[in-house]
Simulated scan of single mutants.
Amino acid sequence: MRQLPRPGPRNLITDVAGLMVGHADDSAAGTGVTTLVCEGFYNASVDVRGGGPGVRETETLAAENLVGRAHAVVLSGGSVFGLAAADGVVAALSARGVGLHLKPGSPAIPIVPAAVLHDLANPGDKAWGLDPPYRRLGMASLDAAGPQFALGSAGAGLGAMAGLIKGGVGSASLDMGGGLVAGALIVANPVGSVMTPDGRAFWAWPFEIDGEFGGGRPDPAVGAIDPVPDDGRLASLGRLQPGAATTIGVVATTADLTTAECKRLAMMAHDGLARAVRPAHMPFDGDTLFAIATGACSIGHGDDRAVRLAAIGSAAADCTARAIARGVHEALKG
């Protein structure tokens, strides 16, 4: 009998060896930053599906361009202000000597793409004037990076909402055997709902492993027949505006993927987002997923390589769905 993939020992994206994650929070402002740090300069790409994204360095990861790799990825609250978190990470990494060295004696140039979510409407104090906290939070999240990290209301998930309930940061992994591992790190702040209409289960429930997000199951009599629930409360909360909500994150694998193959990985991972959030990829969302490949595990050549890439993409999609539900579940637990 075929042995099914299982979560890695942490059930976190850091089960992909060579990756670390750190959070930094500003509880007074109700916002935070989460940074994924690469121990190497790994091939990477990105796929943006939402209609209101806030991003940095995405074109740097395009397969037709020169670099196509990343030293870190920053996920932040704060909408456009949160993009400054990547400035902090860039400065701190450069001070450590991490980055491209184009000329002897010149500063190292780290490649740090980023995506942000909108949490400016939450109750936190956003009267920061000319000194938003995000550059400082970016540096602090880098300092905090390690193999273990909190889920739920932490880092970029601190001020997140998932529809009308708390959102949060989640993660999940799958060990596919033979050194091949896939994982996801997701911050869930969507307009759409992560819960079934009866409120008993997450939309991602078919992909749950070992009760990782509560084991809830929907009422079989309640179907998914209403594609966009009519709920005026979202409009009253100001979340039905371009860029007012989003789900952002990173999927990763140990496979030796090219930058172009990382793009396919990110594209497939968005299927997991659509399984876990209903509806997803709306004009109001900024749904963005990065993909990183550490290159530690060869997946061969030719047709066999394409088949293995497809399997990794499918695993990454499942990890994405599970990570979204885990993040919200942990946030609701408080």
Rank of each mutant, 00 (worst) to 15 (best):
V90D: 00
R217I: 13
L100E: 06
R96N: 05
D219Q: 11
A154I: 02
Y134A: 06
V55I: 14
R136I: 09
A317K: 04
D318I: 15
L273V: 15
T247G: 06
G159W: 05
G163A: 09
E64Y: 14
A150Y: 02
V307Q: 14
L309R: 02
T288Y: 05
P104F: 09
A144W: 04
V187A: 14
I109F: 15
A221K: 14
A86Y: 04
F213C: 10
R96I: 02
H23R: 05
A156Y: 08
A162P: 07
L142C: 01
A160C: 09
L237D: 12
M195K: 15
G334I: 14
L100S: 04
F284S: 13
A72W: 05
N65M: 15
S76F: 08
A204Q: 01
V21W: 11
K333P: 00
G302D: 10
A121L: 15
P279Y: 12
S236F: 12
P123T: 01
R200D: 10
A144I: 05
L36G: 03
A182F: 07
L237C: 11
S173A: 04
M20R: 15
V112E: 02
E208N: 06
N189W: 07
L257I: 11
H329R: 02
V328T: 11
A274E: 03
G215Q: 07
H23S: 03
V250A: 02
R136V: 13
F284M: 12
